[in-house]
Structure formats: structure tokens, C-alpha cells
Amino acid sequence: MTDYDVLRVFCGPTGGYGNELGVVRDGSALPERADRQALAAKLGFSETVFVDDPERGVIDIYTPSVRLPFAGHPCVGTAWLLDVPELVVPAGVVGARQDGEFCWVEARPEWPEPRTLRQYATPAEVDALDVPPPGEWVYAWAWEDEAAGRVRARAFPGRGDGIEEDEATGAAALQLTARLGRALNITQGKGSQLLTAPQPEGWVEVGGRVFLER
């Protein structure tokens, strides 16, 4: 089995929750896309990252079923792990920085695949949702405190690849931030925390806590 690290990204304030991420630090061990896709499917994380150049931050991202040009929680987790000022993904160059307990990345909200950003009236409605059938990528959200920018969210990728609900989704948080045009403090899934902030010229930052699981 190819060696890999497991991180939890966008952990809650006490270090719990977060979305698991697999990172293969030596991407040269699996240079072929088909082999990378097969390993990502076998590991079963919502995303698995292959590091092709640790010094330059060149990475390759896969879900269990598809290769992605960009994804939020893999970039935050890998930037933290490699401690680099930027990452290079197929979509472009992702800025990265460490700020105390948070790792931040800066990206464009149009890089990830479009999500259906579906607003509900209350957090209780979001909490009560059943997993929808595969097909549409849904980011369900509601204001917990609109004045403070606090949001309750859940994410349903809809790919039919075994990931019915994402615990923490940086790409969707970027898109919601771009739509609302303001900084957000998002509680997603069972208790993960994502912070976001709009940046000049249409860029958005997303940040969170990262822990090395194994």
C-alpha cells in the first residue's frame, strides 16, 4: 500500500470534527492518473491529494470518482502539512498562509464545480434534511446570526460515489462567500468550522484548523 497521511481539516474550536483528507506526500509513487483514481476510490476519503512537488506545492486532487481542478479542504490541509506559501493546482495558483491556529488559502470561487446554494429559513431546517438522491451538488445553509455572519450548513455532493455528505467543504464556502459578499463563520456537518473573507478582485480566503490524524 502506498504511504499516506490522514489529516482532519476545518476542525471545531476544541479540535474535534473536521473533514478527513488523505495526502500521498510522494506523488511519484503513483504517477499515472488511473492509479491515483483507484487509490482515492480505495481509501474512500471525500478527497485524496498527491503531492508532485513539495517545494513548489504542486498537487493533484481526487475524489473517489473524479479528478478535481481545485478543492478547498484538500488545499487548506496540504498547505498546512507542507507549510508552503502557495499551492499549484490545475485551476491555478492558490495562495496560502498560516495565522495562529488557522491555515488559510486564497482561491477563486469559479474554480470548483458549481454548487446549488440552497438557503433555508432556520438552522433547524438544515439539521433536519435527509440526504438527497444523487445528481445535484447541494450546499444547504441558513443564517444562525446574520448580523455576525454566522452560518449553519450541510453539503451533499450528489456524485453517487459513497460520499453522501461532506463534513466540511471549502469550495462551497468560497462560493457562498462570493454570493453574499461578506466574511462568514460557518458551522458545517456535525461541528466543523470554516472561516471565510472576500478579497480584492474576486478572490476569497477560506481558513480553518488542521490536525494530523496519522
Rank of each mutant, 00 (worst) to 15 (best):
T2E: 08
Y4A: 00
R8L: 13
C11S: 12
P13F: 09
G15N: 13
N19T: 10
E20N: 10
V23S: 02
V24Q: 02
A29M: 12
L30R: 04
R33N: 11
A34K: 08
D35M: 06
R36D: 03
A41L: 04
K42I: 04
L43A: 03
S46G: 02
S46Q: 03
T48N: 00
V49C: 03
F50W: 06
F50V: 05
F50P: 04
V51A: 11
D53I: 11
D53T: 13
P54Y: 13
G57K: 07
I59Q: 09
I59T: 07
P64N: 04
S65Y: 12
R67K: 12
L68P: 04
L68I: 03
P74R: 03
A79P: 15
A79K: 12
D83T: 13
D83F: 14
E86V: 12
P90K: 04
V93I: 15
V94R: 06
G95Y: 08
A96Q: 10
D99H: 13
D99I: 09
G100V: 01
E101M: 10
F102P: 09
C103N: 15
W104E: 13
V105L: 15
E106C: 12
R108S: 15
P109E: 03
W111M: 06
P112R: 01
R115S: 11
T116I: 11
A121L: 08
A128H: 11
A128K: 12
P132V: 04
P133H: 05
P133Y: 06
P133T: 01
G135F: 02
E136Q: 05
W137T: 01
W137I: 01
W143L: 07
E144M: 14
E146I: 09
E146D: 13
E146W: 09
A148W: 09
A148Q: 14
G149K: 08
G149E: 11
V151S: 08
A153H: 06
A153W: 05
G160S: 14
E164T: 07
E164C: 07
E164G: 04
E167M: 02
G170F: 06
A172S: 10
L174K: 08
L176S: 00
T177N: 07
A178V: 04
R182S: 13
N185M: 14
N185C: 15
I186G: 01
G189V: 01
T196M: 12
P198W: 03
Q199F: 11
Q199N: 15
E201L: 11
E201D: 15
W203A: 15
E205L: 15
G207R: 07
G207Q: 10
G208H: 07
R214S: 14
